[in-house]
């Protein structure tokens, strides 16, 4: 590997920029490709697959020299809107699973550092907070407040982003009225289909910790089994 190639890979990781290192396994020749890059349609598919699944793609010899496409993705992030009870176990579990967690809640009584030791808290209004986070395809957004004043502005920003997961806590009934409001705000049904609501896999969760497990499980499923 050339020193410049390694330097570029490390720069991309530091800048949280997705990049794919393509290696010709016979000659050792290497190239760096960004999302959408590739010399052929086939190569573009390998690049996008590697980035989406966060897993290398190795091609076999029947299609020319064997090649290895290794993705270097930005870190996984989870944005929780609402510093509510469920956010406490969920932020801890998501951190363990490798997510950089940010909790957004302008209500200082909720977003108190004592309630969330070691977690990044953002006290801005949710739309402002989510815009400043510059959401990308490695982000999951989960709204937990049940309060349209707080949840809806966050959803507005999340729906405009490439976030791989958008979920909303709340009953089916709450979710139906939420969708109605968002439709009124101009979102098309196709866009609203991205929202998982009520969020979480149906495992019969009752306590906040159990609900956190079901939410995190659904986020993981959506990342790994898209």
């Amino acid at each position: 590997m050339k020193g410049e190639v390694l330097a570029e890979v490390l720069d991309a990781i530091a800048a949280k920029r997705p990049i794919v290192l393509a290696t010709n396994l016979e000659s050792g020749e290497q190239r760096l490709l960004g999302p959408g890059d590739g010399e052929t349609d086939e190569e573009r598919v390998h690049v996008s697959t590697a980035l989406r699944l966060d897993r290398p793609v190795t091609t076999e010899a029947d299609a020319g020299p064997r090649r290895f496409y290794q993705p270097f993705n930005p870190p996984l992030r989870m944005v929780l809107v609402g510093a509510v009870h469920i956010a406490q176990p969920l932020s801890v579990m998501a951190t363990l699973a490798g997510y950089e967690v940010t909790i957004v809640d302008p209500r200082t009584a909720f977003a108190a550092a004592e309630r969330f030791p070691g977690v990044t808290l953002n006290l801005s209004w949710p739309d402002e907070a989510l815009e400043s986070l510059d959401l990308d395809a490695r982000c999951a957004v989960v709204t937990l407040t049940h309060d349209p004043k707080l949840d809806d502005p966050a959803l507005g920003v999340a729906l405009e982003s490439d976030a791989f997961f958008i979920g909303c806590l709340g009953s089916k009934k709450t979710h139906a009225t939420r969708l109605k409001r968002l439709r009124k705000a101009g979102f098309a049904d196709a866009e609203l289909e991205r929202i998982r609501g009520p969020v979480g896999l149906p495992i019969g969760s009752r306590s906040p910790s159990e609900i956190a497990v079901s939410v995190l499980a659904q986020v993981i499923e959506s990342l790994r089994k898209p």
């Binding site: 390694l6 490390l10 990781i13 966060d54 270097f72 870190p75 996984l76 490798g98």
Partner: peptide
Amino acid sequence: MADQSEAEVLTAAR
């Protein structure tokens, strides 16, 4: 997913 620790290994190499 592997980014963190793999980045550390690559950084050491450099």
